[in-house]
Write a protein that binds this DNA or RNA. Structure first.
Length: 103
DNA sequence: GATCTGACTATCT
DNA sequence: AAGATAGCCAGAT
């Protein structure tokens, strides 16, 4: 039986977020049947694969990660801006415009 | 194999 | 309004 751990599932779901959209740690946790959004953050922090668009995951209030694994918050913001994401301030994505909810 | 640690968030006081 | 608490993964040491 192929044991699929939470980490792999987090990566898989993250890959479903469309370009130009963002989702939250809590939304991914909810979609996986977990109540623990921290685990999603922990998993993404350890991601090293360029095929997982982990820059599209932010906190509940749209805040980007201060310690984003691919070169910090500046890099995360840059990647999002390239995709057309608008910001309400330096650290916060405009969630009204860009929040992506898993169905 | 125990201990430590790290991108969060809803709920309760 | 602000602080505490719960949730309970997995890699590194």
């Amino acid at each position: 039986m192929g044991t699929i751990n939470l980490r792999e599932q987090v990566f898989r779901l993250t890959q479903q977020i469309p370009s130009g959209k963002v989702t939250t740690y809590g939304e991914i946790a909810r979609a996986l049947g977990s109540r623990d959004a921290r685990l999603v953050g922990y998993a993404l922090h350890s991601n090293q694969s360029a095929t997982v668009p982990c820059h599209r995951v932010v906190t509940r209030d749209g805040r980007i990660a201060p310690n984003f694994a691919f070169n910090g918050a500046i890099e995360q913001r840059h990647r999002l801006e390239v995709e057309g994401i608008q910001f309400v301030d330096e650290m916060h994505v405009d969630m009204e415009k860009h929040f992506y909810r898993f169905s």
